[in-house]
Nucleic acid binder design. Structure first.
Lengths: 190, 190
DNA sequence: TATCAAGGTGACAGTTGCGTCACTTTTAAA
DNA sequence: TTTAAAAGTGACGCAACTGTCACCTTGATA
């Protein structure tokens, strides 16, 4: 009884992600998204009142996906395996943590939907943090993680390190193993 | 023979920096800057044809200042002292490296002045990189830096680490010492 | 104190983005 | 084949940002 859509939700979110990475929050417009989807700008307003709604909807979905992956960390019983798994999933979706940083640029007073999404994002972030803190605790009880380092800094360190740009185009496998070495043992010789 | 300025270049650059950090490149406007300086928007056009000229002028100046500081690294003779000094100056001007990342968002075709500034920024970046690579080499010949790690990754790692957000409000001195520990020896126990 | 160059202003026109809406198109079910 | 719900379109009015310019203000100097 209805017409077929010219674009899938997946394609829309994909385009949203790309546009956010290219233009960042303030430079993001419906025109850019519409052009890339080969639809009229007005069409997007059938689904979203404004760009903040689209962006936060996308972010919630993306975080949800990440949290699903993250929770699987508990299928690994020892810290070392958890650590490897964590690096793997953070690497796989590197950009989303960059995008998550844009949250604070989104005004809250836009509308109820956006406000609800921001609350949801905050909850997801807390869930993520709790899971990760648990992971750090395990590392400390196993005497693998340096106990003098604050949990929040260890976590910030891991997430930050993942974002190192690979301008010099170092081969992927060497890149990953180097990053793991630096994370675990630093840049000094032992 | 002329009227006194209502704002100094220093104050203008300071305001530019703050606005860039708050609104990022795309959200940066002359109106914001003019309001904060208590001048009319039109006044800014007496000095700059457009925002890209102001932004790149500011960036060149900022990078120049940083390079001046950076070159002093060679007054320290051993690697350990150079390392401490480097951390110190990067910490002092943490935000500018965040701002430098915005360079790639600035279109080149704006005008000749902007194009020239972008070329200049590129040169400065190369100078910076050369100096830092020299520093890394010293660390490797002194057998303090892990020789298996690519230079570019070591440098990326240092710069990236500085940007760890201190959401948990860890006291400054502990924060700095923790970061130094993580950089040099990682998050694992020895 | 008259001059004038530099600083400063605000109004104007052009462009781009925003949000709405009356209208058209598609398509599956009646 | 008729119908109507969902999808899509593009033009319109509004708001914000951009760049220009004729004009005003200031203040050192002649």
């Amino acid at each position: 009884m209805a017409r077929e859509r010219k674009f899938t939700k997946k394609k829309l979110y994909q385009t949203t992600k790309e546009a956010l990475l290219e233009y960042s929050y303030a430079g993001f417009t419906f025109r850019i998204v519409a052009e890339r989807l080969h639809i009229a700008r007005g069409t997007l307003y059938k689904y979203y009142e404004n760009k903040d709604e689209l962006i936060t909807d996308y972010m919630v979905e993306e975080m949800n996906h990440f949290l699903n992956e993250l929770h699987k960390i508990n299928t690994y019983k020892n810290f070392e395996d958890q650590f490897d798994y964590l690096l793997y999933i953070i690497f796989k979706d590197r950009e989303i943590h960059q995008i998550r940083e844009m949250t604070y640029q989104i005004p809250t007073e836009i509308n109820e939907k956006v406000k609800a999404n921001k609350v949801q994002l905050d909850k997801q972030h807390q869930t993520m943090y709790a899971t990760l803190q648990h992971f750090v605790q395990l590392g400390k009880t196993e005497n693998l993680l340096n106990p003098t380092l604050p949990d929040s800094l260890i976590l910030g360190f891991i997430f930050q390190t993942i974002d190192i740009p690979n301008h010099a185009s170092i081969p992927y496998s060497q890149w990953v193993s180097s990053i793991k070495t630096m994370l675990t043992h630093g840049i000094f010789t032992n």
